[in-house]
């Protein structure tokens, strides 16, 4: 078994109103100095050793992320 993390983020050129809302809320909560927030998704997958990197890449590209609007990174981590 291995743990795989997939992080999915809106592409830089895509407007992220949710991230902006978070950024705009911070000064109201008394937290100054945060100039930008972008919001994405974080997936943790527990996978059998039989699942190879090519399969993980396909899972991320065809399902977890939409390549039209999002960038993604797949990495194996120590469970």
């Amino acid at each position: 078994m291995a743990r795989v993390v997939v992080d999915v983020m809106p592409k830089q050129e895509i407007l992220d109103p949710q991230g902006q809302a978070v950024a705009n809320a911070l000064p109201r909560l008394g937290f100054d100095g945060v100039t930008s927030v972008r919001q994405g998704k974080h997936f943790e997958l527990e996978v059998d050793d039989s699942v190879d990197d090519a399969t993980l890449a396909k899972i991320a590209e065809t399902f977890l992320a939409n390549p039209v609007i999002e960038d993604w990174v797949v990495r194996r981590v120590d469970a």
């Binding site: 809106p10 895509i14 407007l15 109103p17 949710q18 809302a21 939409n66 039209v68 609007i69």
Partner: peptide, 9 residues
Amino acid sequence: GALLRNAGL
């Protein structure tokens, strides 16, 4: 293309 969260949230 794709459809995303409304700009005004």
